[in-house]
Amino acid sequence: MLRFENVGIRYGMGAEILRDVSFHLEPGSFHFLTGASGTGKTSLLKLMYMARRPSRGWITMFGQDLVHLPRTKLPEIRRRVGVVFQDFRLINHLSAFDNVALPLVIAGARRDDYREDVEELLTWVGLGERLDAKPPTLSGGEQQRVAIARAVVAKPDLLLADEPTGNVDPKIGQRLMRLFIELNKLGASVVIATHDDSLVRKIAAPVLSLENGTLIKRPSSAKGA
């Protein structure tokens, strides 16, 4: 479903921050992406949600060659990918509801068709009372939950979450992880970038670890896995 082969990443003319990255994600798989701060977790995810192209190597996703895909074909693929950005990237003048509804609006859905889904989802992440709140009036953790709801609302085939529990307490964090697990059960592949070791230890899932400028795939470190 997603395959990287000898991928390199570099910004501008600088040295490659990651090189020879090769891995393969099965449909319906669940992975953590770990690595110290600044090792390139966000950069790797950017390749997956097509915000950048690799400096070399091949990436195929949903059977398409991402490196050579014309940009007119990108929207169809991006719609199958849900992203929780590390910096949320909510639209400040839109309500929490409209932010969450955005992927559906972009896909051409009508308000009457998605209203219940969006409300239900926001209630699940604990924001049922704040549907009309604008992101700047929400706390960091609340904004993060809006961002997560937006990422999962269109039931993507691939979910990419960059530090999705960085700003919330462990209890809400667990609840949010449940959301990802449910989505995963529905068949979506999930990749969660984090440096929260306790999270990685709690859930039995293989780990993509960034070390020494490249990617190493490790089995789950969860107890009993």
């Binding site: 949600y49 097509m50 915000a51 007119t72 990108l74 929207p75 169809e76 693929i77 991006r78 719609r79 990918v81 992203v83 990237r89 639209i91 955005l102 992927p103 972009i106 896909a107």
Partner: peptide, 16 residues
């Protein structure tokens, strides 16, 4: 440009 980028990454066509 930030809004435009989010729209792009969320799968909006240029025409949208």
């Amino acid at each position: 440009h930030e809004i435009v980028e989010v729209l792009h990454l969320t799968g909006a066509h240029d025409a949208f």
